[in-house]
Design a protein around this nucleic acid. Structure first.
Length: 417
RNA sequence: CGAGGUGUGGCUCAGCUUGGUAGAGCGCCUGGUUUGGGACCAGGAUGCCGCAGGUUCAAAUCCUGUCACCUCGACCA
């Protein structure tokens, strides 16, 4: 990609947000606030997000989850069936509108629609279990938005749903998804822990959240380092849940818990039969009897994960994309009289399938360097004075500022990794 | 919805207390000099001061209303 065609504008000043990463995203115009909680994303964010999506997708497919796509516009009737139309509209958390054939909502979540989707495909115990997921926009008219990507009204979410003939099978799948989620976050380079949580409006009993440590996080997590468990502080408000924990762990004591701030990136639930019963999700068992199936539900906030990664990977000079999801592997920064040499290298790297940006803008060298750091490309290849002095390429690593010289082939090998 | 705060060129903001020709920095355009870590000189363009009423000879400034946005609470991936 040529920088001149990317439609980016960088600024000298940062604006304000409680999260440094979000300030930087506004500064380099990768995040544009159109109105409260509604954002446009620039090229770098979209490419990084696509990389996250691919990691999520590949891991889920390795666990035999099948990708589908469900509509965002959903009819009121489905939400009345589950009883959640009133729950969500009362608190004005859901966007609704009048269409030609009645009322609709913009999906805040998808339990209703997924049942409507899968119902006719699951009629016998032989059709179970099934685990399907989608990656799509969700809409929630949040009472309060926060921190750019971290809490917005329109956001990209991966949501998955599993269907089972028995409670045991549901629990088994739940545990398998937990394992899968831990793998996903580890592939993304995030340090994430599973935390016991309250299920709220989604329903069901057992649920765990996947939390990433961060001072700007909205959630407070209580760590029991001795017993190796963690729980969301909101559990303290539910005496029965607290009692369950006390019963299962003999020397559990609220006094020994350590408080940490976290960002919630994912949440998995054992839903049980709540939705299948209300929405008519039945199958016929081996005895020929009709039964509602058990369900599990598994979500990852993709935009929020992107935001958390930015927050974990930035410094005073700008973003520092980790290799796992970097939108481009490197940027070529030429002094203006070396543009044609830079262009040659650009085509060579592209020819080797390396995602490369060429800063071909007719601006001063210093500005290009500043922008390269601000935008956070993992490697910067400088073509200028030193290029003519020696045939090796000057390379600087964004993260460590480490500088070294490489032959063209060594550079290709380095970036191909 | 409760409590605070802010709306002024593309961006960030000053000016408002005490009414009197609309400001700065960055960005943008033209010309020239620069060209390895956010260059310099000269010239130039850009505003219904969020919107609507009111007070006044006169309103960015005072009053009333309204809308939008931000921060803090109650809800959530």
């Amino acid at each position: 990609m040529k920088m001149s065609k990317m439609g980016v504008k960088t600024r000298h000043h940062r604006g304000s947000d409680e999260a440094l990463s979000q300030e930087i995203l506004f500064q380099c115009t990768q995040l544009k606030r159109h109105c409260a909680g509604i954002y446009g994303l620039g090229n770098l964010l979209v490419r990084a997000r696509n990389n996250i999506i691919n990691i999520v997708r590949h891991n889920l497919e390795a666990y035999e989850c099948a990708e589908v796509s469900l509509p965002v516009i959903q009819p009121k009737s489905l939400w009345e069936a589950s009883g959640r139309w009133d729950t969500y509209t009362k608190t004005k958390q859901m966007f609704t509108f009048e269409g030609r054939n009645g009322e609709y909502c913009l999906a805040p979540t998808a339990e209703e629609i997924v049942l409507d989707f899968i119902k006719e495909n699951i009629v016998s115990y032989k059709d179970l279990p099934v685990n399907i997921f989608q990656i799509g926009n969700k809409y929630r008219d949040e009472l309060r938005v926060r921190g750019g990507l971290l809490r917005s009204k329109e956001f990209l979410m991966k949501d998955g749903y599993s269907f089972h003939a028995s409670f045991e099978d549901m629990v088994k799948e739940y545990n398998s998804m937990k394992e899968c989620y831990i793998k996903i976050f580890s592939d993304l380079g995030l340090n994430v822990i599973a935390v016991k949580a309250v299920s709220a409006e989604i329903g069901g009993k057992v649920s765990e959240e996947f939390m990433c440590f961060s001072d700007i996080g909205e959630d407070t997590v209580l760590l029991d380092n001795k017993n190796g468990i963690a729980l969301n502080t909101e559990i303290l408000e539910y005496p029965d849940m607290l009692q369950e924990i006390k019963d299962s762990i003999p020397d559990f004591d609220v006094k020994n818990l350590q408080e940490v701030q976290c960002i919630e990136l994912g949440h998995i639930f054992q839903l049980g039969k709540v939705y299948s019963e209300s929405m008519g999700g039945y199958y016929v068992n081996s005895d020929g009897k009709k039964e509602a199936y058990y369900m599990g539900c598994y979500g990852i906030g993709i935009n929020r994960t992107l935001g958390a990664i930015c927050e974990n990977n930035c410094d005073e000079e700008g973003l520092v994309w980790p290799d796992s999801i970097a939108p481009y592997k490197c940027v070529i920064v030429p002094a203006n009289e070396y543009l044609s040499e830079a262009e040659n290298l650009y085509h060579t790297l592209k020819g080797n399938c390396i995602d490369t940006v060429l800063d071909d803008r007719n601006i001063t060298f210093g500005t290009k360097i500043k922008d390269a750091k601000l935008l956070g490309f993992p490697y910067m290849v400088i073509i200028g004075k030193k290029y003519s002095e020696n045939s090796q390429l000057e390379v600087e690593k964004r993260k460590s500022y480490e500088k070294f010289f490489l032959d063209k082939n060594d550079l290709i090998n380095l970036l191909k990794k």
